[in-house]
Design a protein around this nucleic acid. Structure first.
Lengths: 181, 181
DNA sequence: GTCCGCATGTAAGGCGTTACATGATTAA
DNA sequence: TTAATCATGTAACGCCTTACATGCGGAC
């Protein structure tokens, strides 16, 4: 990576979990195993090393949760919080929309409580705009090549486009939920 | 991987391209760079090594396309075709739906011409069923936790569910396109 | 006391990413 | 002739995947 300091999506997801409260490695692993966040990872074999990297980088630290006798847990550090917020605030680019929607949606999931509503709204506005632009360009591409494509390829591309459209509609609706009062 | 013989999704995508016609490495790279298939890869740095692996495994071979003076190209072998078809015909599992929709859609894109319509229909029927089951379980999960979730997390999950729903609707429509005459 | 699930990892290997390295054509 | 684009890669690096390893606590 260009910036060896910056965690991967998995690392950022862990920072997001820890920014709610300190947790043990197992609790973190459980969050991935038991919730739909599991789409973002998988196995202890990925999660524990990711935690270790975050610790080495100084983004999380070990703490004793609860009393003196409780298990060791991990907490996010100030430095980690900064990096996490940088991640949340990164601009919504066309490239990210085209190849990293999952990362964008994960970022959004963690925004409540971490960013002011105005920033969340801006994210949604930008996301919607980039999604619509992307749909437009995919549509244009599609018009040019549809006739030459095998039927299932054309349909698969339709599915992809429809997906971006669905996300754009969602962004529109989500904006209402974060509308200024 | 458990089966070191089986190519990755990128490898299978390359096999799919080559099963249409023999192509040079650059043409393959171009297909990823210039079309929405680019979501599946990225750079020559991934594609050329993937081609080399396919060659080592005996799934593709070098051929002289056109005349004697033309560039070297790659063609899929019988063994490669077999592996490719195995990939297309793999059952649609719940796990794949939950964490590998892209792979499933890529498989579908390559099915026309490679599989009989009956097999394509079955894929769509199975996919639709698994998608609807997955939506149902996500909905149930959602009902249980929505109240405790931060607003943006709940919305992000909504987006994911809506996505699966959109795919299910798409599968339904796609079935019509492959309906028996 | 032993067995099973909790809890926390390590080891080996492969793949993709970013960045760089050449030649060979074509355009100016 | 120089520069740009075509065409084909290699190198370093890090991450994830799968599989395995281990200790501990309660159930029985």
């Amino acid at each position: 990576m260009s910036d060896p300091q910056h965690p991967t999506t998995l690392g950022c997801a862990i920072l997001g979990l820890l920014s709610a409260r300190a947790q043990t490695g197992y609790e973190i692993a459980r969050a991935f195993a038991d919730t739909p966040m599991g789409t973002y990872s998988s196995s202890p074999g990925a999660i524990y090393p990711a935690i270790k990297r975050l610790k080495t980088a100084g983004f999380v630290e070990s703490v004793r949760a609860g009393g003196e006798s409780s298990k060791a847990a991990f907490a996010i550090t100030k430095k980690g919080k900064r990096i996490f917020l940088d991640w949340l605030r990164a601009p919504v680019t066309r490239a990210a929309v085209a190849r990293d929607m999952r990362d964008l949606m994960l970022r959004f999931a963690f925004m409540s409580g971490a960013l002011p509503d105005a920033a969340i709204r801006r994210f949604l506005v930008d996301l919607k705009a980039e999604l619509e632009a992307h749909v437009k360009s995919l549509d244009a591409y599609m018009r040019g090549v549809r006739a030459q494509m095998p039927p299932s390829a054309a349909l698969a591309l339709d599915a992809g486009i429809e997906n971006y459209r669905a996300h754009a509609r969602w962004a529109h609706k989500a904006l209402a939920a974060f509308a200024a009062p």
